[in-house]
Structures are given as C-alpha cells and as structure tokens.
Design a protein around this nucleic acid. Structure first.
Lengths: 147, 147
DNA sequence: ACCTTATTGATAATTATTATCTATAAACAT
DNA sequence: ATGTTTATAGATAATAATTATCAATAAGGT
C-alpha cells in the first residue's frame, strides 16, 4: 500500500484545517465522510459512501453526500471518476490519473504511470494544439485475480 | 480530412451489406441513421442524431435511435464515447482511441496517437498485470480556436 | 398479394444527480 | 452558559438520459 495509515490520518486532519480556514463548518456528517473517503483504499460511489455512513449516522441524507463531495471537488481534494453508471471518487490522489477497471469484479485500481501520462498529454498538446487542463484515462479489462 | 467522401460512401454501403448478411432489415430509418453517422465529421449524441433525422422522418422515435446505435455497437461499427452528460458516437473509427474535448466550444476531436496509445496500454499490462480489452481516453482543454 | 416476424414509435419505467426549502445546529459573541 | 446568526442537513421534488414494454406496422421472403 503506497499511502500508509499515518499519512492518511495526517491528510484527514489537514483537510479539516483547510475547511475551517475557509469558514466551512465541521459537521459530524461532513467530518465522517471526509474520514471515510480519505482513509479508503477503494474508489467508492456516492451511494456506497451513503451506505457506509448511514450505519453511524442513520439520519444521513444522500443529498448531503453529494453536497460534501461537491465541496471536496471544489477544493481539489477529491477526484471524480465519471463512469457509465455512476461516479466514483478518489480521495487520496485528487488529480487526474489513469484507472484500471476490472470488467469482472468491478474493482478500480489506480494506474501509476506518471511519465507515460506526461508523454501522452504532451503529445496531444504538440500534435493538436490543444491546451489540456485535465483528463480521464480509463482502461477496461481483467485484473490479475480475474484472468 | 483524413477520411474522404468516397471512402465514407463505401463504408456506408458495406455496412448495409453487413446488416443484410446478418438478416437485419434495412428500414429507411435505420439506413438514414447509418448514413448520417458514417458520413458525419463530428461525434453526435443520440438526441443530435434524432433531431437531424426528424427533418426527413418526422415519425422517428428517440427509442429507435438508441436501438439502432445499440445494434451498431454490437456489430463493432460504432464507438460509444461516454461523457458526463450523455454519450456521443463515432461512426468512422469504431475502435477505442483518444478524444480531445474542448471545454469552451464542446467540440470533440479524434486524437490520432496510435503509438503513444499502444505504449501506454502496454505499460498498463506490464506494470499491473491487467489484460486490457478496451479503453476510453479523454483529454479536456481548449482547442486551438478557443485559446 | 400474402405471411411471418423484426422493427418502429409511443409511452412508461428506471436511476443518478441536482434543486428546493425548512428545521437544525455550528461557530462565535456576549 | 446563553443567545444569535447563518451555513448545513435532511426530506423531497425535479431533471434528464437511457432502457423497457408492447401494440401497430412494414420488410423480406414465399
């Protein structure tokens, strides 16, 4: 695991500071969602987060999940991965990066391919004159376990 | 323009043959949608195709557009580009390839980056043990005209 | 011209996300 | 502690693309 428990705990606390600095209120629901998404190894969807939080906050509303995710996106602290059926969220690496999606077990893996990505983005800019601001690179196939 | 009028006309006719061979019926609506998407320079959505076809076939239903697109996807003759709001379709290059999407004018351009794509797909397979079946590579930014 | 059956078109259903609005509670001051 | 202000939560309705349903129609073969 690239990011360890201590790092995640630190990131979690930094996020709370950032919110406070910008005068957002630290409601228990908000804090819990942030904790969940920052300490998660996976890439949960809004409804998956909702299901998890409801065990601790039975009054939690799905609307609140969406609003909190919007806020975190706004602050560039969460990356939205827009897939066919719904969006999933990456709270650990909130910048564009490739994802490998297993078409059998549905697992979403981060693709650490920094140089290859830099190269292809550069190729796009040079060959087509585009100025790229962000990207979404999704690779679909079978993960090692499902092959 | 990479693909000229003659090539597209040929592809259009080949598609009709392919459908006939597989015992699909050549209804006027179906033929017209195929003609439109194969001769289009852009990447229309279902509703854009619907609007175009309705001028010639006022009875055309959106459901028929979706069903025809499904059929063409099934035959691997159209590529679906699944974007946030809706899907767009590429009837000229029905295999996965990058797209450059202008965030100002919304234009979708094909990214011809065959070697770069091959390289990154290979990197994914080697580094993560995935067997990649398809991909969707979307680059968002400003096109030359909009910069 | 007729028959079979795939396809069309109208419409309802589905589902993720967004919008709306009132009650609540977080943060701050007293 | 208590009160005040106002952002936020939660309930619910609205939105919108896509899919499902099904009777009427017409394509292709006889």
């Amino acid at each position: 695991m690239r990011i360890n428990k201590v790092d995640r705990q630190a990131r979690f606390e930094q996020l709370l500071v950032k919110l406070r600095e910008r005068d957002y209120r630290l409601t228990p629901q908000r804090v819990e969602l942030i904790r969940l998404i920052v300490t998660s190894d996976s890439h949960p969807s809004a409804s998956q987060l909702y299901d998890q939080i409801k065990t601790q906050f039975p009054t939690m509303s799905l609307a609140t999940v969406y609003k909190t995710l919007d806020l975190l996106k706004e602050l560039n602290e969460v990356l939205e991965i827009d897939l066919r059926d719904d969006s999933h969220y990456d709270g650990n690496k909130p910048y564009p990066h490739p994802h490998l999606i297993c078409t059998k077990c549905q697992k979403i893996m981060d693709g650490e391919l920094d140089t290859a990505v830099r190269n292809i983005v550069q190729a796009v800019e040079q060959n087509f004159g585009f100025r790229i601001a962000k990207h979404q690179l999704d690779f679909y196939g079978l993960c090692p376990d499902c092959q």
